[in-house]
Amino acid sequence: MELTHEFTVPADVATTFAAFSRVESMAECFPGAEVTSVDGDAFTGSVKIKLGPIALTFNGEGEFTEKELAADGSSGRMVLSAKGKDRRGNGTAGAEAVVVLAPGGDAADGPTTDVEVTTDLQIGGKVASMGRGLVQEVSDKMLGRFTDCLEKKLT
């Protein structure tokens, strides 16, 4: 499934890029995420998803497979790939998040950046096999919280 979230932050593209392109800043925004090790652009960690009756802990690894900032600061793009599995063997998750930064309109107090996060998420296993497609709802919810947090980082 592909999930898209868009928002605008009150900072220029370069500042936004710098803020987002660190593993830690990404991780601390993802609900329930904990980074256990970082090696350059690669990391390992866990994500605890707790929503209503469901509580799952995914362990996994990820890395920035792309990080590009235009020299003139006119655009930025980063791709984060991650995969993990539920520690009870009930599900697998694979995600590729493409973050695209573009200059937004200037606000009164300075430049802004439009951010688009497109996440291609694959949830497999038992988790995805039950319940009226709730996985999609839950995933959308988690990513929404993630992007909300990113948005607030620079607000």
């Binding site: 009756p53 469901i54 509580a55 799952l56 009870r88 009930n90 038992k126 988790v127 039950m130």
Partner: peptide
């Protein structure tokens, strides 16, 4: 810090059986 309230259980028990939660 990891408790789940069991009321009538008609939704919760299915979730626990499918092991989508293990409080």
């Amino acid at each position: 810090d990891d408790a789940k309230v069991l009321a009538g259980g008609q939704s919760l028990l299915s979730v626990l059986r499918m092991r989508l939660n293990a409080p």
